[in-house]
Each structure stands twice: as structure tokens, then as C-alpha cells.
Design a protein around this nucleic acid. Sequence first.
DNA 1: CATGAATGAGAATTCATTCAT
DNA 2: GATGAATGAATTCTCATTCAT
Lengths: 181, 181, 181, 181
Amino acid sequence: MEVWVKKAEQSTREKILDVALDVLIEEGGRGTTFRKIATKAQLSPGTITYHFNDLNQLLLAAFRRMVETIASAFAERLRRAQNREEAREAVADLICGDVWASSCNMLLSFELYSLAARREGYRQVLQEWMARSRDALHLHFDMKTARALDALIEGYTIHNLHNDIPVSREEILDTITAVTR
Amino acid sequence: MEVWVKKAEQSTREKILDVALDVLIEEGGRGTTFRKIATKAQLSPGTITYHFNDLNQLLLAAFRRMVETIASAFAERLRRAQNREEAREAVADLICGDVWASSCNMLLSFELYSLAARREGYRQVLQEWMARSRDALHLHFDMKTARALDALIEGYTIHNLHNDIPVSREEILDTITAVTR
Amino acid sequence: MEVWVKKAEQSTREKILDVALDVLIEEGGRGTTFRKIATKAQLSPGTITYHFNDLNQLLLAAFRRMVETIASAFAERLRRAQNREEAREAVADLICGDVWASSCNMLLSFELYSLAARREGYRQVLQEWMARSRDALHLHFDMKTARALDALIEGYTIHNLHNDIPVSREEILDTITAVTR
Amino acid sequence: MEVWVKKAEQSTREKILDVALDVLIEEGGRGTTFRKIATKAQLSPGTITYHFNDLNQLLLAAFRRMVETIASAFAERLRRAQNREEAREAVADLICGDVWASSCNMLLSFELYSLAARREGYRQVLQEWMARSRDALHLHFDMKTARALDALIEGYTIHNLHNDIPVSREEILDTITAVTR
DNA sequence: CATGAATGAGAATTCATTCAT
DNA sequence: GATGAATGAATTCTCATTCAT
């Protein structure tokens, strides 16, 4: 009985977080409101504030959840690589594929960047995220190379998102190779 | 007389745009409102809507103004380079120095990324910006290398902004060299 | 032209203040809300906050207005008294009549007492009020007697308000006489 | 067993009432809410409504409790007086001391006055309180004098609460003497 | 050109209260 | 008896925008 109650409680909280990320993706930071989250989650506004004291805490928790998901997938993809060559392929996948560079994740990251530059809580979440990415790259490359690859991943994915013609995987792999030689 | 009137109008317009960018930097996209712009510009709300029909048009014009300023400085720095070696130094400067990577510009770019992903007008502004950056790099490097350098600039500056310890200029120059060999 | 505009503006402000006092009288402190004031004044909520930054400032201004009105009437009644005997009659009138002891004023004073005990702004308003009352009594009586009469006015009016059978004017005049002998 | 259960219930009920009075004192009528009471009492909101159907009944019960306490202390102080002279001293004590005129009691009385003027239930509580006060004074003084003293107690304590410099006990005793001669 | 009073929709949040457990 | 998740109405206040002057 108690277990059921706890599960129900958790699922409401998590539902709210998931919906919050959805709204952030759809509406952007400027358009993300308590109301829209409540409506989309089919919950009353009171239920949202019951679980999160204010919108800030809600967004913070949502971003933490997002980072956890993305960073895990990111690390997982790199962990599957058996050698340096496969690691290069993994990085290319991260840039071109859906693991990291899904437009959803990109959109969320822009919002997080915006918030992280102005508020401590978000900054911590972002720093943890970046640290986990570098650490995952560090499985296969020295720290300096990891930082360079991380920059490339960041830059290529952003530019690919905003350009109609994305840079080809082949071209990206060439750059990766140049940096990891 | 007409000239004087036009100048006065223009100066109010530009003041509004500058203040709008200030507010965007200070408050982020979520916190940027008509009111704050009006207050900070010491203008009545009516004056703002007199010059810009709505907040969207105002922000769009402000971003256009920002892009013009930044892209010019970016191109100028690269134009000063006399050879490939100096061009590499110029790229390092763009990443480490104040021309592009001032935190203000970064903050504005995050907001623009967020908006560009969802609305056509902003998307055009951003694409023009990216095109101008690549073209400036293309003065010294082939298009493929220009894209790679652009990605590096993007990625390194973002990570430097959000990390307490920025990547050293030396390390960055090494990566630039590797990509441009 | 300008004069007309200023008058219009002032009349809205004053209308709001008057309505706020009405709502305070009808609903008491617990029931006085922005909304009720706006509805009763037939103004949109935005108009209220346009004139008063928040409910606190509005209530403060309303109480200031009330104190000004009541204290003036109080002093005026005492000023009309030509001698000690007439002054005693005036005090009796203040307790029994409508000048001061209208139930409306009493109700407002309770709310002010409640707020004054907890917030500085209201406390100042109340202290000024009490000072003006004592000063008005001091026109005819020494300060010590003025304080005693002031206490009597306060106490008798409160008890009369809350009791079904009010104390008679004659009995009150006897007490006044006892205190002013 | 049943006894134990009943005792536990009662103690929760009384705890709620005490906390409600605390909140009323701290926050005033406008700021007294179900939630604050529940939080301060470390009880869940459901527990409060279990004991009191609604906030009104809770406040009413709380005021009844308060009146019982204060009126008993008031009467007790007067009952200790052996003669008219001691009774005058007792009244002075009630005005200057802690028995009645503690600022807490005053604060609660303002809230009760506010509520009593608008709602029947509270009005009854207040009238009973005033009757008990007058009856206690009537032990030593005729009814007319009791009413005058009661007004003096009311007025002096209110004014002392709100003024930085309270009226001296000596001065108050003089007024009491004048009224009771 | 510029103003600022006015607006009403919508923002975040709080509220008393319910009810299944 | 007690809990606490959930509710939705109501709260204060902000918002972009309008318009008469």
C-alpha cells in the first residue's frame, strides 16, 4: 500500500518535470509558464506548487533531470567504443546522431546556458554536465584533446541545428581526426 | 528641420535598441519585458510602441543591430591578418579576447539561439550572422576548415564562459593549428 | 488642458482610495482585496496597480486620507467650543455623535490599530492621528486631562459600538466632568 | 484507552487553538491563514480541518479560549482587592501591567473587534468578554462607574500600546480616582 | 514625436478545503 | 485520529498594448 502511494507521488513529480521540459522545448524560456505546464500536464496549478515551491525550483529540477538523462547517454555511447578509432566514430555519432544532438536537447541546452549565466543553481547543473561530458571523452583521449572535442561537439551541433544544410558526417570525422592525431 | 527631426527620431530608436540589448544581457530572455526597457531608457511605454509595433519587432531589430556590430568586428579582426599564421592568431584572439567572446555577446547569442530555433525572423538574423562569420574565416581558410574553426570558436567560448577555469590560449592555438594543418 | 488631465488623474486616485476605505469598512482587513476594490471602483486591476504599486501602499494612502478627514472634523468640533463648559459638551458629542464615533470610522480605526502594531508606515499614520486628537483637546484642557479625555473617547466609543445598549450621553458627560474638574 | 485517546485529541485541539492565537498575534487578521497555523503547529492541513470544519470555527474557538483566559485573570486581579482603595490600584495595574494590557492581548482584541463588528459569532464572544469585565469592576464600583473605568482601561491601554511614551501609572491613577470619587 | 493613464489578459502563487488512505 | 496529495478558485501583481491628448 505504502509503496503504491509513494510511486504515485513520484510519478506526479516526474510527470511535471517531463512536461516542463516539453514546454521549454516548445515555447522557449520566454514562453514557459506555470500555467502552460499545468495545462499540458492536466494538473491544476495548485498541484504544481504543491510539488515545487516556485517555478525556479521546478525548472531547476527539470534541468537536473535532463542533464542526468543526456549525460548518461553521452557517456554510454563513448563507453561502448573499444579503441581510439571507435571513439572517434562515437564522437561523430554524438554530433550527427540523436543521442546528444537531437534538436530537443539543443533547445534545452540554450535555455540552460541562458539561465546558468545569471543564476547560481543553474550554473552548477551546467558545470556538472560539462564535467561529465569531458570525463566521458577522457576515457579515450587526454584531457586537452577531450576539451577540444567537447568544443567541437558543441560548435558543430549548434551550427547544424541552425543551418539548413548540416555539415556532413565525413567532414566532421575529418576534423575529429585532425584534433585527435 | 526635417533632418533634425529624423535624427532625433533615429537617436530615440537606437537608444531603445541599445537599452533592449542591455536588458537582454542583464535579465535574460525570460526577464526581458517592455516595461524594463522603457524604464531603463527613461521613456514612456507609449514611446516604445510608437517606434516598434510590438516587442517582437523590437527584439528583432535589436538582434540585427547586435549582429551587425559583432560580425563587423569579427571580420575586421580576420581581415587584419596578413597570412595563415596570423589568421590562426586572429582566431585564437576571437576565442580568448573581447572582440567576440565578451560574455555580453555570448549571453545575447544564447537568447538569439533560443529564439531562432522557434521563429523565422530570428532564424534569418542568426543565419546571416553565421554566414558572415564563415565568410570572414574563408578569407584565409578553405570552406571546410572555416566551418571547423567556426565550430571551435563557438564551442570553446561557450565552455570558457561557463567554466571557472578557462582553457588556455596556448591549448586553443594548438587545436586551431591541428585543424588548419 | 494640462489642468484637466491632472484633475482626471487625481480623481481616479482618490476614487480608488475612497473605494478602498469602503471595502475595508464592509469586509474588514481579512476581506479587503485588490479585486474587490477594483470591482467596486469599476476599474480594471491594472488601473489600481498603475496608481499604487501594491496593496500596502494603497491601504497606507487610504488610511492617511481617512485620518486627515477625521482629525480635521474632530479638531473643528473642539475649536467651535468657546469655553470649558462647551468643550465638555463637544467631547460628549464626539463620543455620542457622528463626527468621530460613526461606526464606519470605528471600524477603520480597528484595522489601522491592527496594522499599526505590526508595520511602521501604519504606525506613523496612527501616531499622527493620536497626536492631532490630543492637540485638539489641549486647546481647552491641560495635557494630562487631554490624555484622560482621549482615553475616555476611545474607550466609550468602542464599547458603545459593540454593545446593544449604548451608554447614555448624560452618564458620559458626568464622567467627562469628573475628569475635567 | 478511551481516556487516553480523548486526551490526545483534546491536546491537539488545544495546540491548534494556541498556535492560531500565536499566528493572529504575529501576522494580524490579514495574514492569518490555515496554512500558517498548520505549519507552525507542525500538523498537516487535513488535521486542522479534522478538528475544525473551517477557519471561521477555528478562529471563533481560539478567541473564546483567549477571552476565557484574559477575563479570568482580569476578574482575579480585582477580586484580590479588599477595599475601594485597593480596587483603584488594581485597575491601575490592569492598565499598566501585564495582566490585561500585554501587547499580545491588545493585538488579539483588535482582531476580535474587527471581526465582532461584522459577524455574529464573534460579536457574542466580545460581548461576553465586556460583560465579564464590567461585572468584575462592579464588585467594587457601581455600574456607572464600572462602565467609565472600563472605558478608561480600554482607551489608556490602546494609546499606551501605540505611543512611544506611555502615560505614567501616577497620572492614570489620578484619573481613576477622579472617576471613582 | 512623445506621453502616460488605462486596460484586461495572464503571470506566479496562496488559499481553504476535500478525500482516499 | 491523522495524514498529505490534490484541487481549483482566488490572490496579488505584471504584462504588452492602446489611445486620447
